[in-house]
Design a protein around this nucleic acid. Structure first.
Lengths: 205, 205
DNA sequence: ACCTGTTTTAATCAATTGATTAAATTATTT
DNA sequence: AAATAATTTAATCAATTGATTAAAACAGGT
């Protein structure tokens, strides 16, 4: 069985390890993760981790690359669509990301922590820069704010308003006295509100 | 010299260790920090760390407590001032925090990461909840948004718009192609803009 | 100068951690 | 079935890590 018996849920040993690694890395971060935790989570012998992925770091690189990939999938098609309004794009971006983050709430804190811990490692990605800066979306932000506002500020606000509550969720739940259900309801409401708020910013002055 | 020769900059051995620990912990996080890194940064023998603070964790607890303290200092006097307008309070909060974060840019990511890594440890702080929820500031947010908007959403937005850029700064600098100077200019501009943006949100609908 | 308590140092410990090895088991090919 | 290749396991390694110890250096009081 070297190649696919159509692998019912593609549950190769390698795949099991990778998914276990994603879970543990994302929850605890690279430094706090023990390869033995990953092995246990995957239900495999520790040595198999090195057999399939050479090292903890190589495994991490693969998981992280896929995680970042996931955040960019589908973004290009929105950013570069020349047939939709700016407001429509903002609604799509915010809605898609909040849906994604409700499924993977600790993705942003994980990614931002690891970028900070090792900025050089992620410096390569010149593609992410042009993806945004050359987009139809960015042009629309520029001309809608026509000189009044730096478009980067608007970008920061869209991402910040969308992502921040998930980054700070333990804190917000505590000081706001919210359970998971109430927090979820807030995030659902934000899907509607953030585009309205951003729209307001674009009309300031 | 058992007690103060007025300690020119209070540079006790214990203080040197604590400040070195603050620097290393804040930069690398608890898990990635080695007690030997702290000792080297402080220029002291490793054993002195345990002599003065018993353990890595106890030292961390002290540093973290002080860090969180720093974020709350001066907040109460703003939140509970019954003589100022809501807009005035928002300006004060945003301005104070951006000033603080420009001096200590990796404080928020550090704190939020550690809270997520160990939520129980920080669960005690029932004081932080009432500090916000019982404040004159919170009442003003409630009545200004009069039923139209959940005040918690406004709180999230104020904190998010203020703090998020610092959390995501390596990413923002990269995709926005910003150097430190340009990033700083953006943060300066946000001191003016965030209160305006929040004001707009309070008037939505 | 001598004693006493505090601070500092070098050496060391036990536990943990990422990784490897050699043998075993299992699958595939001939 | 035999041979070969791939996968899995248990045992072990060397390096790192947080912490401790016993001795040395230092200070203040008498």
């Amino acid at each position: 069985m070297t190649k696919n018996k159509l692998e019912i849920t593609d549950t190769t040993t390698g795949e099991k390890i990778k998914e276990a690694a994603r879970k543990v890395f994302t929850k605890k971060g690279y430094a706090a993760t023990r390869t033995r935790d990953i092995a246990e989570e995957a239900g495999i012998n520790l040595a198999l981790l090195n057999y399939y992925f050479r090292s903890k770091e190589k495994l991490f690189d693969i998981v992280m690359r896929e995680n970042m990939q996931q955040l960019l999938i589908g973004l290009r098609s929105v950013l570069y669509n020349e047939t939709t309004t700016l407001l429509h794009k903002i609604k799509a971006i915010v809605s898609n990301y909040i849906n994604l983050l409700r499924k993977h709430p600790d993705l942003p804190l994980f990614i931002l922590s690891e970028i900070k811990a090792n900025p050089d490692k992620f410096a390569m990605n010149i593609g992410a820069r042009t993806l945004l800066l050359k987009s139809h979306f960015f042009k629309q932000v520029k001309e809608t704010g026509k000189g009044k506002i730096n478009p980067i500020q608007i970008i920061i606000n869209i991402i910040g308003l969308t992502v921040f509550p998930f980054i700070a969720s333990p804190l917000l739940k505590h000081v706001g006295d919210l359970n998971q259900k109430e927090f979820d309801a807030l995030m659902k409401e934000r899907k509607k509100m953030i585009p309205i708020w951003i729209n307001g910013m674009l009309k300031v002055k």
